[in-house]
């Protein structure tokens, strides 16, 4: 952000002389500084999503700070960045899924909902009276054509991935995801791997307490998006902790 200011960073409706839209870049920055990372893997039998989140308060009721949401029965969304913005995107996603169902009589395909949410987020980079969303999301889906993983970022970009990471530690997470055998990995195998990645990218110096939330949409879950079973989460967390300790 070398050329901060100079009057061109106030609105998304004006390019800077060197062709940048600062507000969108700041929105991406907001995602990275927000403190959470979301990762996802497309496996042979489904998609696994995982989010690392810091515990805001010891007095908070467990499970009330969800960062993985259902958009429809077969679609999950893991979010990073500004939570309130993410919930707005989530609501839009649910609306799109409902509307598609009632019009076409079928479940919305993963690439369609990703494209529509990308369009929605892009819309918020086009007008001076709108602020871009400070959130990046991962969308895991399982439709007639099989499992798919997409990401959408504040600029409205969306890609389909074999594995993806968004948020604070996305770069570190991506380099670890690349090492996974993505063409043969199953969801069951991916769950502890994602937990290990979450533990290894977590910066213990900044915050001690954090939690992992993992969901999947796969053959085992009946092609429905659900949080993984409690025992699987417990063993995954144990694997993550063990790997972290072995590393140290």
């Amino acid at each position: 952000m070398a050329s901060i200011g100079t009057g061109y960073d106030q609105s998304t409706s004006t390019f800077s002389p060197d062709g940048r839209i600062f507000q969108v870049e700041y929105a991406v920055k907001a995602v990275d500084t927000s403190g959470s990372t979301a990762i996802g893997v497309k496996c042979v039998d489904g998609v696994v999503l995982a989010v690392e989140k810091s515990l805001v308060s010891k007095m908070m009721v467990h499970n009330t700070h969800k960062r993985i949401f259902h958009l429809d029965e077969h679609i999950g969304m893991a979010v990073s960045g500004v939570q309130a913005d993410a919930r707005n995107v989530m609501n839009r996603g649910r609306g799109e899924a409902t509307q598609y169902r009632s019009t076409y009589g079928d479940a919305i395909p993963g690439d369609v909902i990703a494209t529509r949410l990308a369009g929605y987020m892009h819309l918020h980079t086009m007008y001076w009276w709108l602020r871009p969303f400070g959130t990046s999301v991962l969308i895991g889906s399982y439709d007639q054509d099989g499992p798919q993983l997409h990401d959408v970022d504040p600029s409205g970009l969306s890609y389909r991935h074999f594995a993806a990471a968004v948020g604070k530690a996305k770069t570190a997470a991506k380099s670890q995801l690349e090492k996974l055998p993505l063409s043969t990995l199953t969801c069951r195998q991916a769950v502890p791997e994602l937990a290990k990645i979450m533990y290894s990218i977590h910066d213990d110096l900044k915050e001690k307490t954090f939690e992992i939330e993992i969901s999947w949409v796969c053959e085992e879950s009946g092609k429905k998006h659900t949080h993984i079973p409690a025992d699987l989460l417990t063993s995954a967390v144990a694997a993550g902790k063990a790997a972290k300790e072995a590393e140290e």
């Binding site: 969800k66 649910r94 009632s102 949080h227």
Partner: peptide, 15 residues
């Protein structure tokens, strides 16, 4: 049936 299915899915999303 369609109205009730929509309701069921909305409830599923609340989770």
């Amino acid at each position: 049936l369609q109205i009730l299915e929509q309701k069921r899915l909305a409830e599923y999303c609340v989770d």
